[in-house]
Amino acid sequence: MTEKNHFHSSGERAWCPGCGDFGILSSVENALMNLGKRPHEVLIVSGIGQAAKLPHYINTNGFDGLHGRALPAAFGAKAANHRLQVLVTSGDGDIYGEGGNHFIHAIRRNIDITLIVHNNQIYGLTKGQASPTSDLGMVTKTQPNGVSTIPFNSLAIAITLDAVFVARSFSREMEFTTQLIEEGVRTPGFSLIEILQPCVSFNTVNTYKWYSERVYKLDSPYDPADKLQAYKKSGEWGEKIPIGVLYKKPRRTFLDNQFKPKDLPLFQRKTVMKEIISLTNELFE
């Protein structure tokens, strides 16, 4: 890269060498740069986990919040200032486990946020327990007899709920990931980009090799506008794993329903003079 990326931060990173998170971080930096954003215009919100450390490793505003609660906090920030470019970066345990309820309703609400889920199919921060996306049979210290709960299919759920942009990538495919993030950010509404990311310390099954042998890019004639096709693709896992845009369908966003884009952000609007409501008659409504 010739041009200096002003999103790149030089600080220390508390990730294991070889962690897939490094690739995702670079892809986020490059996507924001390619989109022509400036650091103060961007807010990255996260929850808790290895992936959730990302806001501290990039030159933007950051809200490193509570486990599972990144999405509603991001929603509040976006609602108060819709001119902020809001991205959420967090892991599979954070978004699909602890924050599963918020994941579902964030899609329904369709505010303009880009959700990047680092999916390593394991809990890294707490040193290797099964996550909602762990494959059946994976043995861990807390699942000594192997995982017996079926994996959470986040893409299928997002498609079912008509998320406007549903994509999957693999952290090693940095260029490709960058493009998907750019497209997700450009798409008005709630975009989901799930990035398969090996955990080099605790997931001995889903390794770089394992993913590399399986992922393939969706190409024409695959049509992401075809919901049934997309739904079918979301169920493809095992021998072959599709990456790319699985589903894309424009829909009115939360902000479309609230005000026109030229409107002043909520945080800059002034209080309007108003009389105390006499409630005598309103009591009966």
Binding site: L43, V45, F63, G65, L66, R69, L71, P72, A73, A74, F75, G76, A77, K78, A79, A80, N81, L84, N101, H102, I104, H105, Q258, F259, D263, L266, F267, R269, T271, V272, K274
Partner: peptide
């Protein structure tokens, strides 16, 4: 009526999270 919003969230945790997000971004919530 005053160009503000009220949102019914999915649960109380989401409600307080959104309140923090809004204050963080500069608005009384």
């Amino acid at each position: 009526k005053l160009e503000g919003w009220t949102l019914q969230m999915e649960d109380e945790i989401a409600a307080i999270s959104a309140v923090l997000g809004a204050w963080f971004a500069g608005k009384r919530a």
